[in-house]
């Protein structure tokens, strides 16, 4: 199994620089990092990838059994670390990938040096004594939204997603192609993301951790950011003046400053 092509791994930056592994969240792929990756690659060995089932990963490697739970995605991360023999990894995980990073670091503790969690939430659904921000019905509604928007997804999309170099015109035709995903795989990822409860796993974090949140984020409200911060002893919490769930897109400079500040303090 060639993990590098399976996960569409791309590497940039000086070979001997510290490793920064950037993991995209649910809904998109490594394109999400386009506004911050070039600046980070000046100082770090930046490793980008797509989870199997997302972006331009090898969709034939996908199986429902493996990717129905976050552990399957964490295995992707660990396998990438092993394939490239990455050590002292500074892991930057957006959204659900923040928790995937926690699981990966617990599975392969010798490879991870620190965690940067952007918009993390260990549990999206409310439960007694915990407010994740959503009800089970809300998640059902999201799954319906996904389905409504994947009606336009068709087999014509597959060559684009699989990176068919013979037909570059397909990419141009499909305006929303960045995050195009096989609907069945997206559905499985959505369920794994929004129905998971990894609150207990926060206790396992032993590496220095930065929790980076936006001031206005529906998906990861500040209450949840505070919960994660409190659950990981010694973690640092930075709140960006930004709206939405993707500060690396909406506020790239502030995001870079926060990441650089955290990593600079560590070294």
């Amino acid at each position: 199994m060639d993990v590098v092509s399976r996960n569409n791994v791309t590497v940039a930056g000086p070979e001997d620089a510290p490793v920064l592994l950037l993991a995209h969240g649910f809904g998109c792929d490594q394109n999400m990092w386009r506004l911050v990756a070039p600046a980070l690659a000046e100082r770090f060995r930046v490793v980008l990838f797509d989870y199997v089932g997302s972006g331009r990963s090898d969709l034939t490697a996908w199986s429902e059994a493996r990717y129905s739970a976050l552990d399957g995605y964490a295995r992707d991360v660990v396998e990438i670390c092993e394939a490239l023999d990455l050590r002292e990894v500074r892991f930057v995980g957006h959204s659900v990938s923040a928790m995937i990073g926690v699981l990966a670091a617990a599975a392969a503790p010798d490879r991870f040096a620190s965690l940067i969690m952007i918009g993390p939430s260990p549990c999206y659904v409310d439960s007694p004594g915990y407010r994740g921000g959503f009800s089970a019905e809300d998640i059902d509604e999201l799954l319906q939204s996904l389905q409504a928007n994947y009606l336009g997804w068709s087999a014509a999309m597959a060559p684009v997603i699989m990176g068919n170099p013979d037909r570059p015109e397909l990419g141009a035709e499909l305006t929303n192609s960045f995050c195009a995903t096989d609907p069945a795989m997206a559905h499985v990822f959505a369920r794994a993301t929004f129905l998971s409860d990894t609150r207990e796993d926060l206790k396992k974090v032993t590496v220095p951790t930065l929790v980076l949140e936006c001031s206005q984020d529906v998906i990861a409200p500040r209450e949840v950011g505070a919960y994660v911060h409190a659950a990981i002893p010694g973690s640092r919490l930075v709140t960006l003046e930004a709206t939405g769930h993707c500060p690396h897109l909406s506020a790239p400079e502030a995001t870079l400053t926060a990441i650089a500040g955290f990593l600079g303090n560590l070294s």
């Binding site: 809904g27 998109c28 999201l142 939204s145 928007n149 984020d217």
Partner: peptide
């Protein structure tokens, strides 16, 4: 709707920000 909000923040807004436009 709440589901729509999540979809917006995980798909719509990132795509718009990357492409400058998003359709249909």
């Amino acid at each position: 709707t709440v589901g729509g909000k999540i979809y917006h923040d995980t798909h719509y807004a990132p795509l718009l920000s990357m492409q400058g436009s998003i359709n249909g």
